[in-house]
């Protein structure tokens, strides 16, 4: 298979989604601020959406279902980003920091 016809194979999209997911996991375990972790979680959600759309294009009998599902993922991700950022701002007001190591009051 030629390198120029990569966009016609399901494996290309699945591998890309896996790489994005791995980068999201890496960011999630290495970032030390809440905003950085939120950015990494957006990468993970994008990887999940790419997987849905790839299977929707190549294997699903009705290609509208995956597109609708991806639209719902986008709506939930937008809600998650809004809530997460407002929590970040509330935490910053109370602690004067968004570093995860400072937020250990619930540790007991």
């Amino acid at each position: 298979m030629s390198i120029l016809s990569l966009h016609n194979s399901l494996n290309t999209y699945l591998i890309l989604a896996a790489i994005l997911f791995g980068m999201g996991v890496y960011g999630l375990v290495t970032r030390r601020t809440l905003v950085g972790m939120l950015i990494a979680s957006e990468l993970i959600l994008a990887a999940a959406s790419i997987n849905f759309m790839a299977f929707n294009r190549f294997t699903a009998p009705d290609p509208t279902v995956g597109q609708i599902f991806t639209l719902f993922i986008m709506a939930i991700a937008a809600a998650e980003a809004a809530i997460g950022l407002s929590i970040t701002i509330a935490v910053y007001r109370n602690y004067k920091s968004v570093d995860t190591e400072d937020l250990v009051d619930l540790q007991g």
Partner: peptide, 30 residues
Amino acid sequence: GLVTAGLVTIGMIGLAVNTKFQAMPTVNMG
């Protein structure tokens, strides 16, 4: 952390490449 993410990625790529996905006949173009 790099090893963790790399293992997750390699595992998912292996799963994706080694699985045979059955394509169904489509009923519309989306």
